[in-house]
């Protein structure tokens, strides 16, 4: 499995290496529609920049593959190399989690060296499958109940994360709670200045928590503390600013 930046021209257009010119034309037209601005299939998931990068890659792929000479020399220089399950990527080498770039590089190379044979990978897959099933039966409850880290403070991002993890849209919560979507978003984004008086926010957060299956008793006090501290700080500085 590789990232978009590792796909060759054929993979970009989703055609086999032996594709006929007609197939390449069709695939390109199809891809243009799929990745066009305003395309239905892109609804809600794309930041503008991402899609335009992909469009540029598609154009480049087509420019090369549609021209017999360019295609021939591309084929020459890009003999199908054996794809790796875990491809080294430039991004991986600068991953923050690794202590240094060299260590990250070693880790990646290690992964490449230990790539399983076909039998091995089928076995790994089965084991992974079995692990999934087992974990399902044993762990889902704990995991559902406990969320990411039990206890601790509930801030906006954590609420959003829990909501997403439990598969709720803002609109669905707005429907159930009758709290407007913009209030709910402000709660998640901690735009305290745009939220109404504390007593209302308390009600909103209670309803929000209950809807996504969190215990308001755990959520509300810690969230309200954040809100009040932030508001106090702001009013104090405003007060001081007046003097």
């Amino acid at each position: 499995m590789r990232g978009i930046d590792e796909l060759d021209h054929y993979e970009m257009l989703e055609v086999p290496r032996g594709a006929s010119p007609g197939e390449i034309d069709r695939a390109y037209r199809m891809a243009q529609e799929t990745w066009a601005e305003g395309s239905l299939a892109l609804y809600s998931i794309f930041e503008k920049r991402d899609a335009s990068e992909i469009r540029a890659r598609l154009d480049e792929a087509y420019r090369v593959l549609a021209d017999p000479e360019l295609r021939a020399s591309y084929d020459q220089s890009h003999r199908a190399t054996e794809p790796l399950a875990i491809g080294p990527t430039p991004t991986a080498t600068i991953a923050p989690a690794a202590p240094d770039a060299a260590a990250a590089g070693r880790a990646i190379n290690g992964a490449a060296r230990t790539l399983p044979s076909i039998d091995e990978s089928a076995r790994v897959a089965r084991a992974a499958e079995a692990a999934v099933t087992r974990v399902f039966e044993e762990d889902t409850e704990r995991y559902d109940g406990r969320d990411d880290d039990a206890g601790g403070e509930y801030d906006g991002p954590r609420l959003r994360r829990t909501r997403l993890f439990r598969g709720y849209e803002i609109d669905q919560i707005a429907d159930v709670t009758k709290v407007s979507g913009s209030h709910l978003r402000n709660i998640e984004d901690e735009n305290f200045a745009d939220l109404p008086a504390d007593v209302y926010v308390r009600g909103f957060v209670t309803a929000y928590a209950r809807t996504i299956g969190l215990d308001p008793v755990l959520v509300v006090p810690s969230y309200m503390t954040r809100l009040q501290e932030s508001r106090q700080k702001n009013s104090r500085s405003r007060f001081l600013g007046l003097r």
């Binding site: 499995m1 875990i86 990527t89 991986a92 991953a95 790994v124």
Partner: peptide, 22 residues
């Protein structure tokens, strides 16, 4: 994919599990 890159950088066994599950 971004997530996989992060996992790769820390733990190759988990990265394999990730790829296979994917």
């Amino acid at each position: 994919l971004d997530l996989l890159r992060e996992i790769e950088a820390t733990d190759t066994a988990e990265a394999h599990r990730f790829v296979e599950t994917m």
